[in-house]
């Protein structure tokens, strides 16, 4: 097990390296220049030139990449060309916000989706099944920015309610943080729910057909005890797989929800970075998200062995 983890970790090195090259290349292919953006349309050419020098953008690309990589290897993500602030602390603090949003969003999605998925599987092809499936799919059929906008406008119009404008984390003030995150988390959760629901349903359908469940059911055991006792554990691998993928996906895909609700998370940090051509920010941010993504996947694989001890690596 330990050896497996170490091996997996080593295999991450080329991936991370590849991502660094990819993000650097794409970013520099995108037209636009941070100095001009900062100075806007009224800027003089001199002003732009001065600022470009200050930002270190006058160096050749390869040199810029090597400098960035060199710093990275020493744990230095560099500074934002825009604000001059170091990037890593900003990434970490924003990651903490995105993480809270993501986890809460995922919890909403799962709390809703897993039970419904189970019901749907147990009563397969019944009207309950059909309704539940349709309902879940509605969630992935409407763009989440439309859902989020509707929630914001509706709540403010009919209840005069709006989330607290200062974003606080759960470890500072849980009650306040709950109010901050509830809407964006629901908006995210709706999208997740559909995927998890489908996965739960099909995993359960498969398990329920297995002999030992049939035996248990035939023995006249209470059906729900059978389901909870045997089927859940047996169905959890695909559910964990998709859940893990979703968490990883959400960390990078929370951009839209963060943008809509002005949540200063990692997604928005990177998005702003793209808009402002703040190269080190985007490079560092994407690299970080990718790293988390692959680590979450590794964690999922490790969880497999815990769920099903028969799996050995």
């Amino acid at each position: 097990m330990g050896r497996y983890i170490v091996k997996r970790l080593i295999s991450l090195v080329p991936i991370i390296f590849g991502i660094s090259v990819l993000v650097f290349t794409i970013l520099h292919l995108v037209p636009g220049d941070p100095a001009s953006i900062m100075l806007g349309t009224s800027a003089t050419p001199e002003a732009i030139k001065v600022l470009r020098q200050e930002m270190g953008l006058d160096l050749p690309l390869v040199q810029q990449y090597l400098q960035w990589m060199g710093g990275l290897l020493q744990g230095d993500f560099g500074v934002s060309v825009h604000t001059g602030e170091p990037i890593l602390p900003e990434i970490l603090s924003r990651f903490s916000i995105t993480l809270q949003l993501t986890v809460l969003g995922a919890l909403f999605g799962w709390l809703f989706a897993i039970p419904l998925g189970i019901i749907s599987a147990v009563r397969v092809h019944s009207s309950v099944d059909v309704v539940v499936r349709l309902f879940a799919m509605l969630g992935i059929s409407v763009p989440n920015f439309a859902i989020g906008t509707l929630l914001l406008l509706g709540l403010s119009l009919y209840f005069g309610w709006f989330p607290p404008i200062d974003v606080v984390s759960f470890w500072e003030d849980p009650a306040e943080a709950w109010q901050v995150f509830v809407l964006p988390a629901i908006t995210m959760g709706i999208v997740l729910a559909a995927g998890v629901m489908r996965m739960t349903r099909s995993a359960f359908l498969e398990t329920l057909e297995k002999d030992f469940i049939r035996t248990a059911r035939a023995k006249g055991n209470n059906q729900w005890i059978v389901i909870v006792g045997h089927a859940l554990r047996n169905s959890s691998i695909p559910i964990v797989t998709i859940a893990g993928m979703q968490i990883g996906y959400l960390l990078g895909g929370s951009v839209i929800v963060e943008q809509l609700f002005s949540i200063p998370g990692l997604g928005q940090y990177i998005l702003d970075g793209i808009y402002q051509r703040d190269y080190p920010v985007v490079q560092g941010g994407v690299l970080f998200v990718a790293l988390v993504f692959v680590l979450v996947n590794l964690l999922v694989d490790v969880i497999y062995t815990w769920i099903d001890p028969r799996i050995k690596y």
Binding site: F108, L111, L150, G154, F159, P163, V182
Partner: peptide, 20 residues
């Protein structure tokens, strides 16, 4: 539009935020 949305949400979140 809003009502149908809220119904869907109450179903999944147990009420959402309090209208403080």
């Amino acid at each position: 539009l809003f009502l149908s949305m809220s119904l869907m949400l109450t179903a999944c979140s147990g009420g959402g935020g309090k209208a403080g």
